[in-house]
Structure formats: C-alpha cells, structure tokens
Design a protein around this nucleic acid. Sequence first.
DNA 1: CGCGGAAACTAATACGCATTAGCAGCGCGA
DNA 2: TCGCGCTGCTAATGCGTATTAGTTTCCGCG
Lengths: 373, 373
Amino acid sequence: MTEKKRRGRPRQAEVARLAGVSQTTVSLVLGGNKQGIVIHEDTRRRVLEAARTLGYVPDPAARRLAAAQNNLLGVFSFTATFPTDPAHSYYPFLVGVEREAAARGFDLVLFTGSSTGGAGAEAPGALERVRLADGCLLFGRHVPTGPLRRLVEDGFPLVHVGRRDEVEGLTWVGADYVAASAEVVRHLVAAGHRRVVLVREDDDAPASTDREAGFRQGLAAAAGGEGAGGDQGVEGDQGAGGEKGVEGAVVRLRAPAEELTADWVVAQRAAGVTAFVAEETDTGAAWRALRGAVARAGLRAPDEVSLALLGSPPPDLPADGEATGFDIPRAELGAAAVRALTDLLAGRRPGGTLARCAFRPGSTTGPPPTATT
Amino acid sequence: MTEKKRRGRPRQAEVARLAGVSQTTVSLVLGGNKQGIVIHEDTRRRVLEAARTLGYVPDPAARRLAAAQNNLLGVFSFTATFPTDPAHSYYPFLVGVEREAAARGFDLVLFTGSSTGGAGAEAPGALERVRLADGCLLFGRHVPTGPLRRLVEDGFPLVHVGRRDEVEGLTWVGADYVAASAEVVRHLVAAGHRRVVLVREDDDAPASTDREAGFRQGLAAAAGGEGAGGDQGVEGDQGAGGEKGVEGAVVRLRAPAEELTADWVVAQRAAGVTAFVAEETDTGAAWRALRGAVARAGLRAPDEVSLALLGSPPPDLPADGEATGFDIPRAELGAAAVRALTDLLAGRRPGGTLARCAFRPGSTTGPPPTATT
DNA sequence: CGCGGAAACTAATACGCATTAGCAGCGCGA
DNA sequence: TCGCGCTGCTAATGCGTATTAGTTTCCGCG
C-alpha cells in the first residue's frame, strides 16, 4: 500500500501524509513558525520524525520564491574562482568564508557565471543568477558596474571583497593598503633611504591606487607633510622633495612584463635611488619585473639595494618569502565579508571593515649602501 | 496613469501588459519556446521591446522552481573543502569541477557541513542536506558509508571522486593507481633493480590499497607472472621471487611519521634492496618518512639508492618535484566527475572512469649502484 | 456553405513552500 | 444557554515562471 516515495526528493506534502497532518503544519513545524501558531508537542514530534525518516530537505528555489530565505550565500567572482593557476585564485579568502559561513549555518553557492570555458565573454545574465541565494559575496579586481548597480538598486544584499567605491551603496570589506604601504615606505625612510621608486602595473584598480596613495603618504609623512610627486611611464619620474630631502617616483609598467632593464636600474641608482618597492597584484608582474631587473643589474638586496613589496610575494616564488612587505589577512577578510553579508541579511548596517595588514620586516631591505656616489 | 512599476523588478506580467499580450506569450518569447509554438514576428518584437524598456530580468528562483531542476551540483567533502593548508585541499579537482559545471550551466553548492568549527564531530544530518542540490560530488579518503548508502538507495544522484566500492551502487570516477604504480615499479625493474620496498601508511583507503596492488602487479609482471609477497609491519618483510629474482616487500608506517630510521635503511640495503617507493597520501607521510630516513642514512638518489613516489610530492616540498612517480590528472578527474553526475541526472548510465596517470620519469631513480655488496 | 486545419494566441495549472484566513472543539463567565 | 476566547489545526492563496490544453480567427477547398 505504501507507494509514497515515487521518486526524487520528498516534499512537505509527503512528510505531511506520513505524519498524518497537513502540509501547512509541516511548514509550520519545520520552518521557523514565526507566526507563533500553537502546535501540540506530540504533533511536532510526529512531523519531525516523519521528516527525518523521509530525509526531507527544503527546496531552496521554492523557499526563495515564497519570499523566505534559503540559507545560501552566493560566491561570485568575475574570473574563474578556481583558475588553473592557484596563484590567481581566491583560495585564501575562501578559507575564511567557508569557516564563517559554516559557523552561521549557511551553505555556499559558487556561481560559475564568469568561468564559462575560459572565454572571457561572460554569459550576459550570469550575475543575475545570484538572486537565487539570500545574498552574495563578490570577488574581482575589475567588475562590470552596470549589472552590479542594478542588483544594488534592487536591494539585493551584496558584499564585495576588496575596496570598491564605483558602485554607490555597494558594501565592501577591504584591507588597508594605504596604511600598510605607508608603513613599508616609512620603514625604508627610517633605514636611511632618501629616494624611493614604486613600480606598479598600468591598471587602475582600487588595490593599485591605494598602494600608490600609501606610498605617497609614507613619503609625505617622512618628508614632513608634503606629498610625493606623481607621474606616468618609465620616463616620467618626478620627485617630491621634503624637508629631509625624501623623494619618491612612480613607474608604471606598460606591457605585462619586462619593461624594466638592468640599465634602467643602474640609471636609477645613479640618480640616487637606493630603494625600490613593487606593488603586489594577482599576477605579481611588478615584483617580477623589479626583481628581474635588479638581478640582471647584478645587484643584491639588501646590501646594494633595498627591495620591498607592497604585499606578499607570488606563491610560485616561495624563495621570496623573505621579502620585506606586508601580509594581507585574507582569511580574515573572507570571514569579515560573511559577517557583513549576514548583517545585511539581518537588516543591520554592517560596520565598515578595513583590515590591518601585518608588516613583514623581511630581509630584502636595510640601510642604503654607504659607499654610493 | 502609469502606476505599473510598483516596486522592484518587473515581472513577466508587467512586460505582458506593456506589450499588450499575455504572460504566457512573454514567457514564450523570452524563454526558449522549445514547444515550437508559432509567434508572429511583430509580437515577438513588441515583447522584446517591452522587456528591454522595463529592464526585465527573470527570477532565477521561479525559473528553477518551475523547471523542477535547480541546476545546482553539490560538492561535499568529508573534511573542510577549503582547509587552511592548501596542500590538503581539493583545489586541483575543483579546477576541473568548476570548469565543467560552468560549461553545462550548473552552479555549485559547497556544503559547509563537515567543517563545522574544526571539531571532527560532523553535524549528524550534515550529509542529508546535499539533497537540496540536484546531485552531489563527494570527496574524501574515508567516508561514512551508512548515511551514504541511504542516499544511494533513495536514488539521489551521487558521484564519488576516487575509487569507492564499499557502497554498492555508488558511482565513482577514479584514477588508475594500479596501472600507474605498476608502471613505476616496471621502470625500476627495467633499470636493473631486483629488490624493491614499498613504504605505505597503515590505512586501508582504496587509494592505498590500489597502489599496493599496482606495486605487486608491477613486480609480478617483471618476475614472470607471480605476485609479490605481502605482509605487515616494519619487520614483516617477505619476498616473492620470480624468474629474474625480482622481489618486493611492503612496509606499513604505524605511527603518523618517523617510524623509519637510518638504521632501517642501511639494513634494507644490506639485504639487497636498491630501490624504495612510497605511496602518496594527502599528508605525504610515507614519502616524508622515506626521504627523511634515506637522508639521515647519508644516501643520495639516484646514485646510491633509487627513490620513487606513487603519485606527486606534497606541494610544500616543491624541491621534490623531480621525484620519479606519476601525476594524477586531478582537474580532469573533477571534470569527469561532473560529466558522470550530469549523466546520472539525465537518466543516462555514466561510463566508468578510470583515468590514466602520466608517468613522471623524474631524476631520483637510476640503475642500482654497481659496487654494492 | 460548411468544415478541416493551420496560425497566433491565451487561460489555467503546476512547481514547493510560506503565510493568511479561518474553522472546529472546548471550557467558562454571564 | 449563549457567546467569547483559546487551542490546535487546515484550506486557500500567492510567489514568478514554464507548460499544457485549449480558443479564436482566418483560409482554402470540396
């Protein structure tokens, strides 16, 4: 007589039949019953029991549709979340995301939208799919602001990991690259360096902009209040002197790599530059270019030149683990993002997060060589 | 007069009103219209136009509910999916999983069940939650067969990544560790080795069992058809001679590590053993123990002794990248698992997958030292 | 002149859950 | 004895979309 389990997942209706109650009651018992409707304890138990034996699990789509929540947090990255090269992945963030989500009873939905077969062309409506989840975490150096804005306007809970101010109203959690970069520069100045060059990629993502700002700020602080000069291109160095004669310059790499030559390094040193810093990006191009050029110039850090990194070295260069720089608390940021998102879900306004990065003294910086002329 | 857009996103009904058609027509035009219903070109255009001006985007929850398919594939691992140490992660598999899932239009649900707070105690019903996805991928060296069996019996589509025969009816995709291990052994025998020892952990996961089987098979093939002798424990070596006098022995590490001493290595060599192989596991314990003992014995590979690994070295020992062994096509396996799962979902019986591992010649093996006595 | 049939739509319903009305039964005060 | 409030439940409905089963209009043809 029992032809109940036809196939597939059990529905509330099946649970109801087994427990001898209505579907409504099942929903009441298994859902929160926020209406405060009184259910007899025996009935409650029967329903729970039936649900367990049937292995009932609510359908997330139906839950969403019924204007409830489904305990799913989305994760959307504008590149593949698990690229072939782990060095470009969001893995360290996900460690924290998973832990925090688990602690709060959420599962994660990884939306595969942008990772369609490697072609850069994103499926048009990919981002819209995140609406299936209660809210969504966003990752990416660059994001399509248009579609994003739409979601924000609709009030969909979104948290971007990494500073992102282009989209008004978008919540984000980030690391304080400005302060951390300034600290690195101060470290150099304190060691005695007076002319420092920043090597960065030619890409205006917030992460890069912030590092440059910190670089300038660090110089300015050392110089006694003035900002460091800015500019474009390898040729375009400009100094910004201060009371102590501290000067800085910024170099942008035009091509992805190899724009820096040994000659360039030599010329810089001739001009009095004793320390170089490179920004960290996903590819690590700036740092690679810098260390390569310095090596080709036959210079050694920290004795002949000081090298620092505004961040951590690329994972594929473990030998550079000793580079002076700072560590981004990625797992912590991931966790903070989850907290911010659950705050949003609960209707609370999340407090802004700007995580401190830990300074890493390293061993590639030291006092400037004394015998320089 | 136009009080149409009361709030939020427009629905198909609003689009229909604007275009002067029914909601059905809108669905037909905007959806695939796989029913082949004829729609007049003018109507089509009107609907499209209306949808555009209103900024219509379909609600994924409703879409999935109506389709009775969520397009969600679960990913469940019996340890945290994103452990703090990436070396123990399923990252390489996920690369393939994400790519293949994206290509087939599925999103991934990462169940945070097993990683609740780091306590080994899994939440009791954690595994049951996977039912919320259309099907699920399973990862883990060891799995709780009880709850798993339940899901399989209910016909829930499940694919385990890695061989797993304990649970009848469970689909799995795996790598052919037997053949790959045998190949490594054959390589050693071909180089002239006659006595080979396998170091493995004391843990009977399929991955370990298969490697041992391959080890024996490789020896047997070389010996002319007989199997290699088996045994337990460090003392329990047994040889299995063959026509060419090829013999093998298996050593199990009882404690997690350090069971092997330099003396043991020396004794083995005195007994004529010229090559050692270690199995690869998630922790890499066997390989670590072996290379450590060999190093302490002051021996060098490949000149004084040959060392091979039945797999790849642990990621934290990049220096061992040159070890002779084989590479598991992890991303490929992940992709194969997704294919198998979607086959299951489509009602097809997935073809069994036993991926070939690529032999890696490496540089830690060579001919046995001639001056041995 | 009536009828079969294609073209072009639409009404109705299902999907699984949450929520909002209600509806019986019961005890109790007036 | 009537009615009122309380307990413990259920019928009905809505969420937004896809699909199925029509319905209407118009044509061509015998």
